[in-house]
Each structure stands twice: as C-alpha cells, then as structure tokens.
Write a protein that binds this DNA or RNA. Structure first.
Lengths: 213, 213
DNA sequence: TAGATTGTTAATCGATTAACAATC
DNA sequence: TAGATTGTTAATCGATTAACAATC
C-alpha cells in the first residue's frame, strides 16, 4: 500500500466526508460538485478536490462526483468493510455506550470480547457478547488473537494492562483513558479520545468568547 | 480578553499540557525545563516555549518552569474554575458515562440538569441530579438559564431540539451526535466529539500500516 | 561569574487556497 | 460546440522548528 504519504490532516477529514456522503446518498442525491459539497461541509471546493486527488480522483470533468460511487470509494479507503477483531476492556457506562452504539453498522472492526474486573457483571451480555472477568483476558487473546483493544477504564491500572495487551499481540488501541499508550509502546498504533480535553477546550472557547464584539 | 488571536492549534494543546503538569505536580516535581517536558510529551522544546509565550511566558531563564505555578496558570487560561451551567440531553449509557466521569473534578462547567425522552428513567438520579422528562426542558431552561448543553442523543431529533435549545439561550454545545449544529446555528459555539470518526481513522491507519517495512 | 534555559525573532516546513489547462 | 467542473500545479498562508540574544 502506498497510503503512507497521505498527510494526517487529509486522513482526519475522510470520516467526515464519508458521513456527509452517506447522508447525501440516503437522501437520493446521486451527483454533487466540489463546490456544492464545500458549501454543505463548510470547506473550500479546492480543498475537497485536492483531498480526493490524494487517492486518485474520483470525479469527472464537467459533471462532478457520483455520490454513491464516491461514498463507496471513501469507504474502501477507510477499510470500513474490514473486520479487525477487537476486544473491549471496561464494561462501565462508557464501555457499554461504545459497544452498543459505535459498532452499529461496523466501522472496520468486529467486537469479539468484553472484559471487566468487576465480578458482579461477569456473564452479563452486551450486544450478544458476554462480559468476561479480566482474569480470562490472557487465555481469550491466545485463543482468538484480537488485534485491537478498546480501552474504557481509568488510567490507574493502565501500565500493567497495556504491557500485557501488547505482549498478547494487540497492535491497535482505541484509547479512552488518559494513559499515554503511544509513549510507552511506540510499536503500536493508538487513536485516543480524550473527553476531558474536549470539555476543557470548550471551557476555554466559551470563556474567551465573552470579550468579543 | 485578548485571547482571540491565539491559534486553534495552540489552544488544542492546552488541555494536554494541563494533564501532564497535573501529573508532574502529583508526583511532587516542582521544576521542569521545556526540554524535559518536551521529551515527556513527545513535542519539541521550541514548540512548548512558543506555546507558553502566547500567554505571556511563565518561565525563568536559567531555571525553567515552576510546575505548580504553570499548572495553575494553564488552568486559569482554560477557565477550569468557572462554573458555566450545563444540561445533559440523553441519559443513556453515553450520557451516564459523561455525567459520572468527565465532570468529576469540574472542568469549567457544572451539571445542573439531565433530560431524557424515555419516561421509564424519569426520576432516576445520576450524580445527585434527577433525570427529567424532556417535556420539562423548556421550563427548566427558563428558570435556570443554563448556557451549555451536552448532547448525548442520536442525530434524528436534533434539528428541532437544537433550534429549541438555541431559542432558550444555550450558547455552548458539547456535541456527541453527528448532527452539524455549527452549520445550522453559526451563532453558537460547538465542540464536537465524533466517536465513529475516531474509529474510522483507526481503521484507516490500521489497514494502511500493513504495507510498511 | 559561568552555566542553563527562557523569550523571541527568523527560517523552514507543510497545509490550504487560487488558478487554469484538461476534458467530459 | 459551449459550459461546467475536475485534476493539478503554483502561490499563499500559517504553523513548527531553529537559532540566539537576554537574563536568571
């Protein structure tokens, strides 16, 4: 794959393109120009064409882009149909939300196991998958070789857990904790969601706005 | 406030600085140089000094930065101690997670109300706050004038809800839905968390990595 | 004082935008 | 063919990094 020369800023825009195109497609729109898509998304037409061209250009001069086709193409770029096996660590409210919402419709991953250290919820079933006690993590990974771990626990126990998961062959982390996995394990790939950072950003913006005209 | 000329890239780094400094402080470290902080955070020393200087520079030549003081300063910049009143819309798993986790320790906001359209959970208490039926939203806002709304519901009903919330004086949105509030209401301030986008980014990266050396 | 490290400007790098030739 | 709109290069803009004088 020659994907590695695509800049991260372009990559970060792909899922949003995908969502907008999904929406257009669901509304029966089959053709769109970079100009109109730009207006809908709050971008420039130039940027949209530039972005799509990183992957070869899916448009047609004088016509624009075919929505279902472009949607399919971006989905393929995102490998939306791949089924990378993922396990969820932490079945609290956040873990449950992630398991039941975000995996709906599959976004490149397939949830195969859920683990929690709280024995009281062992055996409960979320989206058809039983919650296992964390003690079974090691054997489960040996038997099923998941490649992705979704971290929905606090940072406290993360060092030991991360070391173990890496040892067990986990290569991709979707990390909701504030533990810095990438710093400790530069060999794995980490996508982090820092909820508190997002809230603090809003706090900054909300309070800085007040002085405006 | 003269905050408005600070670039968004700097702002987005502030919460991470804040977390790292909190950690250093909790570990009893009282002095740090830009060089050492850079190593710990995976940034350049130059960038750190440049960033801090946007706000006036909190260091001392030949010494470095005083950790507790810098921590305090960045907290102040983020207005971490402000208590902007916030309401939560949607008390499903995600809403519960947000209410019970992220607001712990306060990050510039104070949760004052929780609403859900599901009558079955009306009256349940989360973090000391009763869940109210969504029908009471309007009166509650008139009585309590919250300025921030946290959106933890799917995009379906968002248009009407957003229009109503804006009419009721909500100025800041922490948006977990995929509905584009900012596009519909350019007058308000929106910080969005697109969980599915984050997962799709990981899917892209995971699948593009395979071809690497 | 000498050493260390900041604050700050200048240089570099990368990302976005503008422009236009190619072409449907 | 004429009009529209892409693909693609060049120009601009902004962010990051390097360098060093200021100074603790």
């Amino acid at each position: 794959m020659e994907k590695n020369d695509i800049s991260i800023s372009v990559i970060k825009r792909l899922p949003r393109y995908y969502r907008f195109l999904e929406n257009l497609k669901n509304n029966g729109i089959i053709r769109i120009s970079s100009k109109e898509l730009a207006e809908r998304m709050g971008l420039t037409a130039s940027q949209i064409r530039h972005d799509f061209n990183c992957f070869g250009g899916f448009g047609q001069q004088g016509y624009g882009y075919n929505v279902p086709e472009l949607y399919k193409q971006i989905g393929d770029i995102l490998c939306i149909d791949s089924q990378t096996k993922a396990i969820l660590i932490g079945a609290g409210n956040l873990g449950k939300a992630i398991a039941s919402k975000v995996f709906v419709g599959d976004r490149g991953f397939r949830l195969v196991g859920i683990f929690d250290k709280n024995e009281a919820i062992s055996g409960k079933v979320i989206k058809g998958i039983p919650v296992r006690h964390i003690n079974y993590l090691e054997n489960f990974c040996i038997d099923n070789s998941p490649e992705c771990a979704i971290i929905c626990i606090p940072s406290n126990d993360m060092k030991e857990l991360t070391d173990l998961l890496c040892k067990l062959g986990i290569k991709y982390f979707w990390n909701f904790s504030n533990y810095d996995i990438a710093m400790a394990h530069p060999e794995v790939l980490v996508e982090s969601v820092h909820l508190s950072d997002s809230l603090m950003t809003l706090s900054y913006l909300a309070n800085s706005e007040e002085g405006e005209g």
